[in-house]
Amino acid sequence: MSAAARLASRGRPLSRPNPAVGCIIVKDGVVVGRGWTDKGGRPHAEAIALEEAGDKAQGATAYVTLEPCAHASKRGPACSDLLAEARPARVVIGVTDPDPRTAGDGAERLRNAGITVDLIDSAEAEASLEGYLSRALRGRPHVTLKLAMSLDGCIAMEDGTSQWITGEEARAHVHSRRAMSDAILVGGATWRLDKPRLDVRLEGLEDRSPQRVLLSRGVPPDGVKVINDPAQIAQLGDVQYLYVEGGASAAASFLAADLVDRLEIYCAPILIGNGRPALGDIGLGSLAEAHGRWAFEETRQLGSDTFTAYRRIQQEDQA
């Protein structure tokens, strides 16, 4: 299932409006089919993996990150029907689909075909689907907030100069994160001062440049969508993954609204002193309120800079 979840990332974000799903079919200890959701949402991961497996799918085990769909579509057959026809002995599902057109029905259709179905509640599969699940369950995209700062927490000199806080390796990593996002957002001040392109400038990934979004009350520039309040991210159509790059006011407003699911910090080994702080007021009433909000996820060295990511601890995690 972990391998299927990694495969799913290859479909993100080009699979929208569908979720990026991964599927691996294994027979006698050998992978005979692999697939991930194609550009535009079709074919689905299961259909691609089954086509590669061919007759070897019969009696095999299929690992799929999301419950196979059970609803009819003009764009292709239901994956639960395709699997039922292929006759694997077992289907292992990482996450139940919250879509009411499938929820539980996909697994039941497989059981009715005599196929063993195991739902394992995979953390890896859930993480690979966090944008889809956030949109389906909370009505908004999954939000990643990126901050690039000095050791003393500054994102720019006092005069606003910010190019460049971090080095080339860190900036390339940011572009790879942009390529995994449906939309990228900055505040009005950042747009006016820095005139950012907000695209992906990695060779071979230029077509993954995200939709540009501006948090502002001004007139939207050409090709840029404007929202006036962080809560309006719910209105960003089929956006599943939103990447917020700042500046300080925009970052603070998303944190104050508790709309940040993942925090990604790039820290450069420099001191600025009297510079511009990374954040403004995020609405904390006491120091105690700052604790218990973030869980460490990963860290890595990018040249001389350090990248660290944290996950927002939800109330259900603390129960």
Rank of each mutant, 00 (worst) to 15 (best):
I115F: 02
A8I: 02
E46K: 12
L129T: 02
Y310W: 10
C23E: 05
D118R: 11
R312A: 10
G285Q: 12
Q240G: 10
D118I: 06
S15I: 04
P210C: 07
G285T: 05
G188N: 14
S176G: 12
G54P: 11
Q314F: 07
L145T: 12
K146V: 10
R177V: 14
S150T: 09
P210Y: 01
S181G: 01
M149A: 09
L215E: 02
V92D: 01
A278L: 05
T144S: 13
L214D: 08
Q301T: 14
P277C: 10
R109M: 02
T65E: 01
V239G: 04
D207Y: 10
E108G: 11
L185Q: 03
T144W: 01
G160I: 09
L66I: 01
R109G: 06
P88E: 05
M180I: 06
L205A: 09
T306Y: 08
A125S: 15
E52Y: 10
A123W: 04
D38S: 14
D38C: 11
S122L: 00
A123Y: 08
I265W: 04
M180N: 11
E316P: 06
T190A: 15
Q58E: 15
G246Q: 11
G29S: 13
S150Y: 08
R12Q: 13
D229V: 07
L137S: 06
G33H: 00
R201M: 08
F254H: 02
V21S: 01
V64N: 00
R177A: 13
G33M: 03
T308Q: 08
R10K: 13
T116E: 15
I120T: 02
A170N: 01
P141F: 05
A231R: 15
P196T: 07
R140K: 09
A20S: 15
R10V: 09
L198R: 04
E46M: 05
L302D: 12
Y241I: 12
L255G: 03
V244N: 08
D258Q: 08
S128K: 03
S181C: 00
S209K: 10
D38L: 14
A278C: 09
I115H: 04
D99G: 06
S286K: 13
A136S: 14
D182G: 02
F296E: 09
E289F: 13
T65S: 02
R111F: 04
G237K: 12
Q58M: 12
G106V: 06
A290P: 05
D81M: 11
L287V: 13
R42F: 15
V92R: 00
Q314I: 09
V200L: 11
S80V: 03
A156M: 14
G187Q: 00
A20V: 08
F307L: 15
A309G: 05
A113I: 06
Q301C: 12
G114Y: 04
L214S: 10
G54T: 07
I265A: 07
A179W: 01
P100D: 06
S162F: 13
D99H: 13
E158P: 11
S80T: 01
T65P: 02
L193I: 15
P19A: 09
V32R: 07
G131S: 00
G29W: 02
A113F: 09
L145I: 09
P77M: 03
S216F: 07
P210I: 00
E169Y: 10
A179N: 02
G11A: 06
L185S: 05
R208W: 02
